[in-house]
Every structure is written in structure tokens, then in C-alpha cells.
Design a protein around this nucleic acid. Structure first.
Length: 860
RNA sequence: GCCGAUGUGGCGAAAUGGCAGACGCAACGGACUUAAAAUCCGUUUCUCGUAAUUGGGAGUCCCGGUUCGAGUCCGGGCAUCGGCACCA
């Protein structure tokens, strides 16, 4: 093997500095009240989305965000902040369990090994985490508090008057279990046979499981739910003040999706009067059909109704002669997967029930159909069909030849042409509303509906309550026991509730959780048994950022004072910078906000939102511009890169690739370029002697920098400072390259400029900058320095370049004294030979002068 | 269909409304070397012109607008990517 020569000895100095940082606890953050805590420094909490420690080890995507936060953490420390920069492991989850099923090895063992591997890898990159705060969601000392928080949720309800979570003891009704924020319900859930578990809506993508891509079917099951929908409005409103990417806020808004409108009741016409043509409302008072609509202003245009096939009312409404057709259709639909059913391309289907409803606004008898384009899971599972002003209804009406009555006139169109018009227009064919625009018509009709008892104003959300139980082994057991068919909470003193030791982790396949196999564990007392479901993977990550504030606390989930300090502080407070992938937009980031709001209402945390500023790093693609995957053979292992180029080069390349938020392809050649830059930095201050040993370069001397050197040094301080604040790390590195190029090949290099530069470089390349700082015999440790400041005065030029334009086209460039007046510049421009040549004989109409920049001569 | 993002050299990219392409990669040329690697120096948007230099023209997805001046602002398209999707 031909040993590749290292461009500088990173293989020696990187482990050296990593060991020093460990030994000196260089990045340990102290809490208020602890020794060495300095209350005069401002705080900064900079957080990564902690990883699931998979067996595959670190991927180049992980360190992208981690490097960005590490640069900010180191930068903030150099600026005198108390910085909280922790790391931990989100270690409950499917892969460890599936590995356990295959090999029989306990998931705890696999997890321990994977964590050790991840930690070694992260340390090799030189991240400045406070490892004394490391946490692991599978540690009983951690999930004790996950279970404790679940009990807070279980023991709370949402008071609609205060719009807050309150202890269940404040509830005055007679059925507390019906209002708890954690409740059990029989619902149509997403069941994945392959994984042997149910999944949350957020975990299902295109009818397949997010993990593994296995088919998911609808199936009614009794499950634990968390009442996140009660917080829908607050989760929406809270977004306004967060410094998050607009696209991510849009994703959450879209997911919650608030619709305002009305719930309207349509009475069912009495079947006994089927042959009467007279619609004078012989009404069957036993059941009304309730619909939700965002367009109550089109009520006069409702010419039919549609129920979801699963709607229980269908049985009551269907007449005997239509019973067979309806039954056929319903079984046909039941056999379809969600995917088939929601296929937009297919033609609308449906059957008539034989029943009629009465449109309350005009007493018209309208037919009731069932069709699979109406979903049981949204609104009331029934709609009023307004074919003239709804695309789907129109398609359905045309297919089955139902009446179409336009009730909104499009501007400049005839009544007939207004069919299919969805925008704002003027109400027609609507005695109560004629002539009104949408807003006024909507307000008026809702008033009418409410006054006449036909319904009420209503708001609906697409957001569903959070399906919180899983039929898995490797998760937090619920601190719940069942007695006489009722659930009750364990007391706090019984936490943590550890899962039973099991030989066989396999899902049962029946929907009964694996924990059901542990007969002894289940038996709680003579007549009570334990809940056998476990919590979903998201539970642990819903509050880990709070645990980081005070990770060893055994009396509380997090200490009140540390929480107030790190999560509170000045408005708006919270985590000051949170970086992670966009894939958690409607999962972790929504769930965590929900838990945080519950804890806030209960007085457990100091701010209503956890993450003040959030940034999504872009995905890193393979060199072939495809998503990295084993299938394409384009996966890059960070450790391989570090082996060849060193951790500093790896870190700098990850940041130099392009803007943090952007998707971008990997390039080994690019790593090499950045590695060359670091080698140039090294050789600026070090030379190799005859024996091949590196020694301090004689060129670096105690001399005053020249004016030009001062200028570039201050320009670099300014650019790097501003770019770190703006997370524009790629251009910060560009500027440092410009700096180094300017000092390359000089016979005398001022040591003061080098020291300043090393501090600027330190957050990006902490190892090489620490080593050179020491080689330069600089005072103290580089990590103890103050971030340099720049002087605008130094940056001011005596002479400036002035661009001369004629009609906006550049014709020449001249140098002018900084003090030159506009008149001076104008004169100089008009006297310029190239300007005069370009003007030809044209008349000068106007001269625009931008001081210190340009003169534009306008002529014709 | 709805929501969001993006569109600049051979490639990754840069540019408070004011010199488009900083910085890096690749390519080409040169220095050093017996040679190579490494290193250092230079050229490198396209096009026309020239023996060469100095030059001319065009150019930031397309069409229009605002402006003395537009990659940047406004209007309308197109394309690519991401999310949601029969949500009433």
C-alpha cells in the first residue's frame, strides 16, 4: 500500500486536541448556582436534532447540521456567551427491535453498541458538545420522566373557556375520562401488518409506512390518543412569532389546515310520503343529516346530498328497493385500499340510497347518494352537493345527471356560464342573499341558519388527534393499569415502569402487543393488569431539549432554575437556534410544540414555544446528484473522508459546499480543494526542515502589518462575523481563503494578523487553529480568546474605483479620491475619452452620480 | 388541483437596485523537477475581430413593466424539486 502523504499532520494533531478538550472539560456548560457559573454572561442554547443511533453509523447528512451548530457554539463562546450545546440519543425505535427479532439480541445491547459507535464518530469530528449532559431516551432515568409527562397529560383536560390545559381536578362534568388529553378510543387506525403495529397519520406516506414502505390499511382498533386537536388554534397562532423558514410554517399550517364555515342540518324526508310530489316537508324527525361546509353562501345551490359509504346513517336512509345496490357498493369500497380510493384520476362512483333530504333554506326535496369521494374521517362524513360551485360535485352531478343550479354569478358572465365558478361573485337564485358578495352572503346565511335552528357557525381542522400507542416492545410502557374495564394512572412513585424481560420480541400479528406475552409483568394486582401498548418513538424527543438543561436531576423532569435560565431569559427565549432536517416538519416539530404547550399551561415551563429560531439543513446528494443510497452505491462515509483529509477539512468542506439550507451534491474533489486551503494555512506558519519535521516558519515575525494587510484582516473579521451570524458559512470560508491567498509567498508575515486569523478560523477548523495558536507561542488557549472586532475606519479607502457608464453601459473605470464631490465626478466623467467616444455627438440629458461608486451619463 | 422552494459558466456557487460570475472544482499553459507527485504563478461566460495587444457585441429560464441603471423590484408564463391532496 502506498501511504498517501498528508498535506499537514492532522492525523497527529486532531486526536491530540480532542484529548485536551476532554481532559480540560473545555466545553462544559455550568448551570446557575454551580461552581464557576458566571451570571453576567448572556446565554445561548444551540441545539441539533439528536440522532437515532442506527447500526450503519454516521452519514454525511448528520454532520452538516452538527457542524453548523458547532461553529455557532464555538463562535458564541468566543463572544462571551454561556453556551448550551448538548447531544444525546433518540434510541427507542424499530430498527433495534427488528434486529432483535432476527438475532435474538436484546435491543438494549444493540442500542448500547450503536451509541458507542456514534459517539466515537462524533468525537472524531471534534464537535464541542458538553458530553456531561449526554442523554439517552431508553435510559430508565430518562424515560421515567417521559412517563411522568404522559401522566401530566393524562391527568389534564382542555378547558374551552380558558383555552388551556388544566388539571383534571378542575373539570366539573361527570365523565372525566371523556375529556382527558390522553384518552382511549376505538378509531379507524393505520394498521401495518408487516410492522405489526398501528401508525400515526404523520407516519404514513402514500398509503405506506414511512419506515420500511410496507402497506398500511384502515382498521378499527382501541387505541390511546392524545388530544392535540384541542391545541390546533394555538399551534397555528404560535407559528406567527417564530423565526422559522416560511416553507416549514406553511407545512405545519397546511397539516393543521383550519377551515371556517358552518354545520348545517338537513332533515330527512319521510319515506312514507315517497310518492308525494309535494315537498311540503313531511319530515322524518328521527334523524337529520349534518354537513360541514365552507360555502354556506351556496346553500340554495345544494341539489343533492352525499354520505360517506361508511356513514352509519346510510342504513336508516336506504329504501328497500335500493338496499342491494347500496350493500354492493359499500362492500366494493371496503375492499379498496386507501391508495385506490383516493386516486384522483378515476371517475366518480356512487349509488342512490332512495332517500331524500329537505334543503332547509328552500324546502326542496333533494336525493341522498353515497359515494366514496366523501370521507368519513373529515367533517361529518356527509356533504351537501353544490355542483354549480364545486369541481367534484359538478363532476358527480354530470356523471349521474343531477340538477345543477348556479347561485353565484361570475363577473361579466351569464348565469349559465357561471356554472363551475369557484371565486367571489354575486349571489343569485338565492332569495335571502341575492346581490350579495361572498362575505356578506356567508355572514347573512349563517345568521339565518342559527336563528332558525338549522345549524351553527363551525370550524374544522384536518389535523387529527395523535394516535399515541404502538404494538411494539422497544418503547416506553404506559404507566397505566386496567381494572374493571377502566384505566387508571400509576402513581409517580412507581416510575420508571420498565418493560418486562422478553425472549421473543416478535409482534403477535393479531394487533395484541408483544408485552402481552409477559404474563407475570402484566398482572398488577388481584384485579388489575398493566397496559401492554408502548409509546411511539416520538415521545422521547418531545421534551429532550428540556432534559438537556438539567440532565441528571432525579427529583424533577428538569430543574426549575436551569429551565428558566436556558429556556427562558429575555423575550422570546427558548432554544435560540435549532438546526435539523425538514422531514420532521409535521412530526417531531409539531408534537414537541404540543407537549410544550401542555407543560406551559400546567406551569412546568417558562415559555409557550420551545424553538425560537429553526433552520433546516438541505439534503446532501451523492456525487451523481442522486439521493445517497446503498442501491446507487453513492454513499459517503464521513470516517473515510476524515481518514484521508482530516476532520477540519471535512467540517470546512461541509460548510463550503453551498448555502446550509440548500440541497447539494457531494464532491470529493471539493474536499480536496478545502484540504489544500487548510494545508496553505499550515504552511503559512510552518515549514518542513531537512529531516521532514514541521517547525515554526521564520517568515512569521513580530512586525506591524502593512496598511493593505490591516485592511484585508479587518475586512475578513467583518465578513466572517457577519456571515456566521447569518449562517452563511460558505462565504465566510471564501473570505478566509482570500485572506490566506493574500499572505501566501510573503517573506515577512506579521504574527498579529495570523493570531487574529486563527481565532476567526477556530469555529470552522478547531484543531489546526488550536495547534497553530500554540505553535505561535500565543498567550493562553485559543478557546479562551475574545472574538476580534473590526474597525470600519481601517476599511475606508483613500481612493475609490468609479465606474463610468453611458446609458447604463460600462465604458470605463477611473480612480478618484474618496473626497471627490459629485460635481468633480461628473466633470471627470464628461471629460473621459471613452465616455466621449461612446457619446458620439449625442446630447447629454442627465448625469446620475452615485458617490464613491459610479457615474451614469444619460444621452440621446 | 392547492401550498412552498428553486432556475446564473463545464461543475459547486458569489453578487445592500450600481463593474455579473468572488471563492473553490475541473480544464489548459508556465515555473520547480532527470521525471512524476506535491507546491507556486497564469488563463478560463459565450461570441465577433485581430499576427498580437487595444477592441466590438451578447449574456443571469421566457415575455412584458418600473428605473438613469434590474440576476436583484413588479405583472404574466415555463421548467425542476419538495409537501399536501376527492379535506366539502
Amino acid at each position: 500500500m502506498n501511504e498517501r502523504r498528508k498535506p499537514y499532520p492532522f492525523d497527529r494533531l486532531e486526536p491530540k486536541w480532542q484529548a485536551i478538550w476532554d481532559e480540560t472539560r473545555a466545553f462544559h456548560a455550568t448551570n446557575p448556582g454551580e461552581e464557576n457559573f458566571d451570571p453576567n454572561r448572556p446565554k445561548f442554547y444551540v441545539l441539533d436534532m439528536f440522532p437515532y443511533p442506527s447500526g450503519a453509523g454516521l452519514h454525511v447528512g448528520h454532520p452538516e447540521g452538527y457542524t453548523a451548530t458547532d461553529i455557532v457554539a464555538r463562535y458564541k463562546r468566543l463572544n462571551g456567551f454561556n453556551v448550551l450545546h448538548p447531544m444525546g440519543w433518540d434510541a427507542f425505535g424499530l430498527p433495534a427491535e427488528q434486529y432483535a427479532i432476527k438475532t435474538g439480541q436484546h435491543p438494549a445491547v444493540t442500542t448500547r453498541e450503536n451509541v458507542a459507535k456514534f459517539k466515537t464518530q462524533l468525537k472524531r469530528i471534534g464537535f464541542s458538545y458538553d458530553w456531561e449532559r449526554e442523554i439517552n431516551t431508553t435510559d430508565p432515568a430518562y424515560y421515567k420522566w417521559t412517563q411522568w409527562i404522559f401522566l401530566q397529560i393524562y391527568n389534564s383536560w382542555f378547558n374551552p373557556d380558558t383555552k388551556k390545559a388544566e388539571p383534571i381536578s378542575t373539570y366539573r362534568g361527570d365523565d372525566a375520562d371523556s375529556v382527558r388529553l390522553a384518552y382511549v378510543a376505538e378509531v379507524a387506525v393505520n394498521w401495518c401488518q408487516e410492522l405489526g403495529t398501528v401508525l400515526a397519520n404523520e407516519e404514513v406516506i402514500d398509503g405506506k409506512s414511512e419506515v420500511g414502505g410496507f402497506p398500511v390499511v384502515r382498521r378499527p382498533m382501541r387505541q390511546w390518543m392524545l388530544r392535540i386537536t384541542a391545541f390546533a388554534d394555538r399551534l397555528l397562532d404560535g407559528l406567527d412569532d417564530l423565526d422559522w423558514p416560511l416553507s416549514l410554517k406553511a407545512l405545519q399550517r397546511n397539516w393543521i389546515s383550519r377551515s371556517e364555515g358552518a354545520e348545517i342540518e338537513f332533515p330527512v324526508a319521510d319515506r312514507r310520503s315517497e310518492d308525494t310530489r309535494n315537498e311540503s316537508a313531511v319530515i322524518d324527525r328521527r334523524y337529520n343529516i349534518r354537513v360541514f361546509t365552507t360555502r354556506p353562501d351556496t346553500l340554495y345551490g345544494a341539489t343533492y346530498m352525499v354520505l360517506a359509504p361508511e356513514n352509519p346513517l346510510v342504513d336508516q336512509i336506504t329504501t328497500s328497493e335500493h338496499r342491494n345496490a347500496v350493500a354492493d357498493y359499500r362492500s366494493q369500497i371496503a375492499a379498496k385500499s386507501d391508495l385506490e380510493r383516493t386516486d384522483l384520476a378515476k371517475e366518480k362512483t356512487g349509488v342512490f340510497t332512495g332517500g331524500f333530504a329537505i334543503n332547509p333554506v328552500n324546502n326542496e326535496r333533494i336525493p341522498i347518494w353515497i359515494a366514496d369521494y366523501v370521507l368519513m374521517g373529515y367533517g361529518t362524513g356527509a356533504i351537501m352537493g353544490v355542483p354549480a360551485h364545486d369541481t367534484r360535485d359538478l363532476e358527480f352531478a354530470r356523471r349521474f345527471d343531477l340538477a345543477v343550479v348556479p347561485v353565484v354569478q361570475a363577473p361579466g358572465k351569464t348565469t349559465e356560464e357561471s356554472i363551475g365558478y369557484l371565486e367571489v361573485g354575486t349571489a343569485i337564485n338565492s332569495p335571502l342573499l341575492n346581490g350579495l358578495a361572498r362575505e356578506a352572503a356567508t355572514a347573512k346565511i349563517i345568521d339565518w341558519i342559527e336563528e332558525n335552528g338549522h345549524g351553527r357557525r363551525d370550524i374544522r381542522y384536518k389535523l387529527r388527534d395523535w394516535l399515541f400507542s404502538r404494538q411494539r416492545y422497544w418503547g416506553e410502557p404506559f404507566p397505566i393499569v386496567w381494572a374493571n374495564g377502566k384505566h387508571q394512572a400509576l402513581s409517580e412513585t412507581e416510575l420508571p415502569l420498565e418493560p418486562p424481560a422478553l425472549e421473543d420480541f416478535k409482534p403477535t400479528g393479531t394487533g395484541e402487543p408483544p408485552l402481552a406475552k409477559a404474563k407475570d409483568w402484566i398482572r398488577y394486582s388481584e384485579n388489575a393488569s398493566r397496559e401492554t401498548n408502548t409509546m411511539p418513538q416520538w415521545a422521547g424527543s418531545c421534551w429532550y431539549y428540556l432534559r438537556f438543561c438539567d440532565p441528571q436531576n432525579d427529583r424533577r423532569f428538569t430543574g426549575e432554575e436551569p429551565e428558566r435560565y436556558w429556556m427562558g431569559g429575555e423575550q422570546p427565549g427558548g432554544v435560540d437556534l435549532y438546526i435539523g432536517g425538514v422531514e420532521h416538519a409535521v412530526l417531531h416539530l409539531l408534537y414537541a410544540r404540543f407537549w410544550h404547550k401542555v407543560l406551559f399551561d400546567l406551569g412546568q415551563v417558562s415559555k409557550p414555544e420551545p424553538f425560537q429560531r429553526l433552520v433546516n439543513q438541505g439534503m446532501i446528494l451523492g456525487e451523481d446528484n442522486r439521493k445517497m443510497s446503498k442501491r446507487w452505491g453513492n454513499v459517503i462515509d464521513p470516517l473515510d473522508v476524515i481518514e484521508i483529509y482530516g476532520a477540519d477539512a471535512f467540517r470546512c468542506y461541509e460548510m463550503f459546499m453551498g448555502p446550509l439550507e440548500q440541497m447539494k451534491p457531494w464532491s470529493m474533489k471539493g474536499v480536496e480543494g478545502v484540504s489544500r486551503f487548510l494545508a496553505r494555512v499550515w504552511r503559512l506558519m510552518m515549514t518542513e526542515n531537512q529531516a521532514g519535521e514541521w517547525e515554526f516558519a521564520a517568515a512569521v515575525q513580530e512586525v506591524e502589518p502593512t496598511k493593505a494587510q490591516q485592511k484585508i484582516t479587518h475586512a475578513t473579521i467583518k465578513k466572517v462575523t457577519e456571515d456566521i451570524e447569518g449562517l452563511a458559512f460558505n462565504t465566510a470560508i471564501s473570505q478566509m481563503m482570500i485572506f490566506v491567498n493574500a499572505f501566501t509567498n510573503l517573506e515577512v508575515i506579521p504574527i498579529s494578523a495570523m493570531r487574529t486569523f486563527l481565532v476567526l478560523l477556530n469555529p470552522f477548523a478547531p484543531h489546526i487553529s488550536s495547534e497553530l495558536w500554540q505553535q505561535l507561542k500565543s498567550p493562553g488557549e485559543i478557546t479562551g480568546q475574545r472574538w476580534p472586532t473590526y474597525d470600519e475606519q481601517v476599511l475606508v479607502e483613500d481612493e475609490v474605483d468609479i465606474v463610468l457608464q453611458v446609458n447604463g453601459k460600462v465604458r470605463d473605470r477611473i480612480k478618484a479620491p474618496l473626497a471627490a464631490t459629485n460635481a468633480d465626478l461628473e466633470t471627470a466623467a464628461l471629460a473621459n475619452e471613452k465616455v466621449r467616444k461612446a457619446l458620439g455627438g449625442q446630447t447629454v440629458r442627465k448625469v446620475v452620480v452615485v458617490p464613491k461608486k459610479l457615474v451614469n451619463v444619460v444621452a440621446a
